[in-house]
Design a protein around this nucleic acid. Structure first.
Lengths: 153, 153
DNA sequence: GCGGTTTTGTTGAGCGTTCAACTATCGGGG
DNA sequence: CCCCGATAGTTGAACGCTCAACAAAACCGC
């Protein structure tokens, strides 16, 4: 049976296109800056951040994947690269023989500390500086709603 | 000289993380749905959309790149693939011998027409259904501001 | 028109992501 | 205890993107 498509009305269309353009431009810009200044893509930066915030600067691979919004496969490849860069080290998990623990090395922490100011400045310049405080608040609520909607279902 | 980093305050931090989580989840979900249902990534879908809306269903490569928010290189690779899929055809530009014109084939149009309802449904389900009309309006303003801010500088 | 600069588009290498397949281990019901 | 399904993580191939290098044509000032 043919189900009627609920097409986007002109306002929704305009919203969707603007959103696509903005989010693509934002992430592309930040990614390029991070690659240029710190030699790593944004996804890797985020892995290092999550590790740096974890107790003992270490996390199980699964927890790290969850925290960084990454698939297991992706994280596996990424950590392999981060390990050859000397920024992360892998160790066996003592309580689960299937498990691996990723830990941030001192060198990794130093690299992150060196990269952070420039990246934060970029986020501020490209995102927060362009929005009013009210818009920042709106964006937070919208994003939190969406995040829950998407990860909940 | 050492310049003080303008770190993110807790509210900004929370906003930024929520935004990252939401936008990544949204695009990942839509990309996966489109790959599953239509056999193409979202970036290719958008190329076909832009072509379908152009007069004569054709555009110069540069204009298409601009419209789809793509680099020239990326578009070149993408159109090469779309051409072997039979969805796009390339022709020489009559007024500029450097130029190439990408045109949507009938088969490409049919593929797009078949993919559109499912994709629109996804956009609606994952984005618009979760937000109030006021939030949709806020998101539009925020996105338009950001888009201008990012592509203007 | 000539010579340098810009613009247009392509190419290939390197990298990151996805997907499916796989191994190994854990946990729970009979 | 044993088996079966679920979970943890890895792997390799295919694919898309980025970047730098390049060729060709157009534009522009003189």
């Amino acid at each position: 049976m043919a189900v009627m498509t609920r097409w986007l009305d002109p306002d929704e269309q305009r919203t969707w296109r603007a959103y696509l353009t903005a989010s693509r431009a934002l992430m592309d810009t930040l990614d390029r800056e991070l690659q240029r200044d710190a030699g790593m893509p944004h996804a890797y930066y985020e892995i290092l951040v999550r590790l740096s915030e974890a107790p003992g600067r270490q996390l199980r691979m699964s927890e790290l994947a969850q925290a960084a919004g990454s698939s297991r496969s992706r994280l596996s490849h990424a950590v392999a690269r981060l390990e050859t860069a000397g920024w992360v080290r892998r160790e066996d998990c003592p309580t689960d023989r299937r498990g691996q623990i990723a830990m941030l090395t001192d060198e990794g922490f130093a690299t992150l500390a060196a990269a952070a100011p420039g990246h934060v400045e970029g986020v501020r310049r490209h995102l927060f500086d362009a929005l009013s405080p009210a818009q920042v608040d709106q964006l937070r609520r919208i994003s939190e709603t969406l995040a829950e909607h998407l990860t909940g279902s």
